[in-house]
Design a protein around this nucleic acid. Sequence first.
DNA 1: AACCAGGAGACAT
DNA 2: ATGTCTCATGGT
Length: 225
Amino acid sequence: MFLEAYETLHSHLGPSHWWPGETSFEVMVGAVLTQNTSWKNVEKALHRLSSEKAIRPEIMHKTPVGTLAQWIRSSGYFNQKARRLLALLDWYQNYDFRVETVRRRHPDSESVRRELLSISGIGPETADSILCYAFGYPVFVVDAYTHRWLERYDSGGHRAAAGNYHLLQSMVQSEFAHSFRAEELTRHFNEFHALIVRLSNLYCKKSSPLCRDCPLQRKCQNART
DNA sequence: AACCAGGAGACAT
DNA sequence: ATGTCTCATGGT
């Protein structure tokens, strides 16, 4: 099952110290900026925002879309993403831009998730990244890496879940929920997703796959040496 | 010089 | 329900 892969990855690569971001708000911004975009390009945009002193919700919320768009230019889709950030901030303002307020009013993640999904530009992956990495809810993030990983990973019947966001997510979440204490779930979902991303970036690059060093090589369908 | 990268929404079928 | 198009920069 997933736990086996999780343990293997963790013993080889972990711990991960994720999500890359100083503050919870920076994590939220990163989650939007990285939509269909490499993290390297996101980092440049984050540096620019940092130098503009704009990685603070109160400041960014007052920034005109056009200005914000120019600041995040390097992350691509800058006009869309500028609007999306401001839409997210419109919502976040209802909670005084504070994680603690969100957590207090929403004991569990479902209602927050619905609110996030109702924001234009926030889809399942972005919502779950924010829930897990910024707000600390026990939610497993399913991203493109996870789908690709599962497509080629042999572990008895799990391949059916590749491509189905909700199915894959609930399979991982229920399996982990049976194996870990509730107060540790967020940390494990956080770590598992981080490990899959790190695995992908380290060993599964299309340009130069380093499969011989991959800890999951034996169970990988397209393992090459 | 095409192809890809931690998506999401609008729209047509 | 399931495709297709758009958005756009920067690295390989």
